[in-house]
Design a protein around this nucleic acid. Structure first.
Lengths: 244, 244
DNA sequence: TCACATTTGTCCGTATGTATC
DNA sequence: AGATACATACGGACAAATGTG
């Protein structure tokens, strides 16, 4: 945040807080502000941009909701640069899903299609690091399930790792969105240890098929796995209701 | 916005503007506020929620950025309920793409995979209305191109119509996101009439194959079409740079 | 435990800008 | 042109949170 930011020319048709927020955004895109960096206090920003604190605050709300900053109150607090845009997209995706009254079936179909593509690419592009991460994920999940605990988060993580193995960040993002929505559904189903354990077994077999480059086998396992998951999920058909 | 909203209990750990925005959100989810409805003026909202106007304004910024309302200044203006969540997701998707330095190749691969799935489903689930809309889109595009004008928007629309024909709104949303990003790239390439004309010819052939339920043929045409499009797009490899 | 400093959160009052009648 | 009904923006104040000494 250098001194030249002092000159603030109000743009025609653009509100002051919009101008401020997109200026700060641009600094992030340019790499001049990186995750971990702290913005000056609101009062300082107000002086630098030559606007009121109210305007700064509205700009900060935008940056916050967009996933560019996180705000902490109190001593040592302030606005910290963070990249949580993906997570924020997930929230918006959930809003859209609620508004459009989307069903679990639609979501599952979309998931299956995306994950089919992901698996197809991952078989070709996964390196040792990816395989190791997937294996580690399964081992962790096994440990947890042995203690009769749910390993839901780790099971979601498996599918995210699979997406990462494609080396295609767009596929990662799209999968993440679908999984955010699905995790919301899962959070409302009654936990079932056997389903979770079955999922881990499927993960293990899928990874096995991947390492053997058995494309057809891996895809069949994936379909069977997701079909089973859907069966469990469709027991709570109204999972998207209300709850803002 | 009924009278009972008067009682505003400040939630612990939740900021006042968050509480206000999620209350209004909830009214939208419940259908008590529908697109076209107008919220009371900021000053009235402040009284109803028993908070200051500044707090109301921060809540409105959140609702605005989330795609729940649009705000107009002046006489007869105010906050109008609208559902533009999908479009707002598109903006955030672009932000993420810029932050993650995603390439056109990644985007195109993801697009191809998604559109493959869409075409596969659309062949089964498209009804006469969908086919008619697709045909109409092609006719419109043909007319425009005859006058030596670009039909880029209509060509994007074709693919959105294809997604709608699947009757799966999640596939529609994911496709929309990818297309928003791609349209940003296209906007920075030098327009080329021949490429556009070729796209329309492909659309026509794809629709033909669809009506004949020629799944394999339709998929092959789609791949050839998108490969050609990618070739054109990759001429401007830095299309995502800067520009907040 | 207790003051103290820093920074966000919230409030009030007021003035200006903008679109419509 | 003038009145009206809004959003937009400003300035000053105090409350609340969160750390330090």
């Amino acid at each position: 945040m250098n001194q030249s930011e002092n000159i603030f020319i109000p743009m025609p048709g653009k509100r002051a807080f919009e101008e401020v927020s997109s200026r700060i955004k641009k600094l992030v895109f340019q790499g001049l502000l990186k995750p971990g960096d702290k913005l000056p206090p609101e009062s300082d920003l107000a002086k630098k941009f030559n606007v009121s604190r109210q305007t700064i605050r509205e700009a900060l709300r935008i940056l916050e909701l967009s996933g560019f900053i996180e705000v902490q109150q109190g001593y040592g607090g302030g606005s910290f640069i963070k990249d949580t845009t993906l997570s924020k997209m997930g929230h918006l995706f959930l809003d859209t899903i609620r508004l459009e009254r989307i069903t679990i079936e639609e979501l599952t179909v979309a998931r299956l299609e995306n994950e089919r593509a992901i698996l197809n690419h991952a078989i070709d592009s996964a390196d040792e690091t990816d395989i190791a991460a997937l294996r580690e994920n399964i081992e962790q999940a096994k440990k947890i399930i042995k203690n009769n605990l749910m390993a839901t988060d780790l099971n979601f993580e498996f599918h995210k790792l699979l997406a990462k193995a494609t080396k295609n960040n767009v596929l990662v993002i799209l999968m993440e969105l679908v999984l955010v929505a699905l995790s919301q559904v899962v959070a409302r189903t009654t936990p079932d240890l056997e389903t979770t354990a079955s999922a881990i077994r499927y993960h293990e077999k899928i990874l096995q098929a991947m390492t053997e480059k058995d494309r057809a086998g891996a895809l069949k396992l994936l379909e069977a796995h997701l079909k089973e998951v859907q069966g469990q999920l469709s027991k709570s058909p109204e999972a998207f209701k209300i709850s803002a």
